[in-house]
């Protein structure tokens, strides 16, 4: 078992799943929507990036930009279909979740119908060089994935801290009713949030496609992993998601070294269940009233 390879892999995956988890977390805490269509947005932006690579240019920035842009558009689509019509209706949380599941069903099947079941692969974005950092051999795509996800996530978090729109989103996260009272448009902010989180999904999709392929159902497993990370960190907490991503990454690396690769999911869920039994609202979640949408 190659330690350095496992650690590099774990860090990369942790960064990518952390990106997804933060998107899910922000959506839940600001809109009260569990976005089950995240897998669909993920697959859609993979196809967007693939189309861009096919027809525009295989340049890394173009492909990544196209992926992020498609993800943002997909997020806005989901918002228009599943958030805008029912966000003020009774029983929104359940209905919203089911609506996003329906969007995911329709979207995935439409992707299958349009692009066919064959998986597509994206061109390598970061070249194929290798460097050694502290004795750990990192390939360029892993370094690129880690660096770009960290940079873009920091940019997003910085934007949320310092800009007017970010202030609105944070206000919605704290208290949606009070935010609506002081004049923050719920629907408009919904579009910002969904575009932002969709963009994050697009980024994760492009980065993960360096290792895996783009397919109509390729988004399901990353979504489940992202959900578990978000859940484990505490829905609504960015900080918790980061800690949880790191924890699960370490767990994944340790398990594959100690027990073997096929036990990763088992130990992962055992860990998640353990964490949730100790802290039912996740690592950084406050055991208080849940967000009432």
């Amino acid at each position: 078992m190659n330690w350095s390879f496992v650690i590099a892999n774990a860090i990369t995956l942790a960064c990518i799943y952390g990106t997804l988890a933060i998107g899910i977390s922000i959506t839940w805490s600001s809109l009260g929507l569990i976005n089950m269509a995240y897998g669909f947005i993920f697959a859609l932006s993979g196809y967007g990036a693939w189309l861009a690579a096919q027809y525009i240019s295989a340049n890394g920035f173009v492909v990544m930009g196209a992926g992020i842009l498609t993800g943002a558009i997909g997020g806005m689509l989901v918002c228009a279909l599943a958030f805008i019509p029912i966000h003020d209706k009774p029983n929104f949380t359940v209905r919203g979740m089911i609506a996003t599941l329906a969007v995911s069903l329709v979207g995935n099947q439409a992707l299958l119908w349009y692009f066919g079941p064959r998986a597509k692969s994206l061109p390598p974005l970061f070249g194929s060089s290798q460097t050694s950092i502290f004795g750990v051999v990192m390939t360029a795509d892993k370094i690129g994935a880690v660096v770009s996800s960290v940079v873009l996530l920091s940019a997003v978090l910085l934007w949320m801290r310092s800009s007017r729109r970010g202030l609105e989103i944070r206000a919605m996260m704290m208290n949606p009713h009070a935010a609506a009272i002081v004049g923050i448009g719920v629907r408009r902010t919904g579009f910002y949030v969904m575009a932002l989180t969709g963009g994050l999904a697009g980024l994760a999709s492009v980065l993960l496609s360096q290792t895996y392929y783009v397919g109509p159902f390729s988004g399901i497993t990353p979504m489940v992993k992202g959900l578990s990370v978000a859940l484990c960190g505490g829905l609504g907490s960015v900080f918790g998601a980061v800690i949880a991503a790191a924890l699960l990454g370490i767990n994944e690396a340790m398990t594959s070294v100690v027990f073997g690769g096929q036990y990763v999911l088992i130990t992962q869920f055992a860990l998640i269940i353990l964490i949730l039994l100790i802290r039912p609202r996740g690592i950084a979640g406050i055991l208080d009233k849940a967000r009432e949408a």
């Binding site: 979740m97 578990s228 999911l265 869920f269 949730l276 039912p280 996740g282």
Partner: peptide
């Protein structure tokens, strides 16, 4: 876990369990 977790935390966790079974 259902004795401790509420609503959506539980839904997401069980979603993960199904995925675990599938992969296994």
């Amino acid at each position: 876990p259902a004795t401790r977790l509420e609503g959506f935390y539980y839904a997401l966790l069980t979603l993960g369990l199904v995925e675990l079974c599938r992969v296994y």
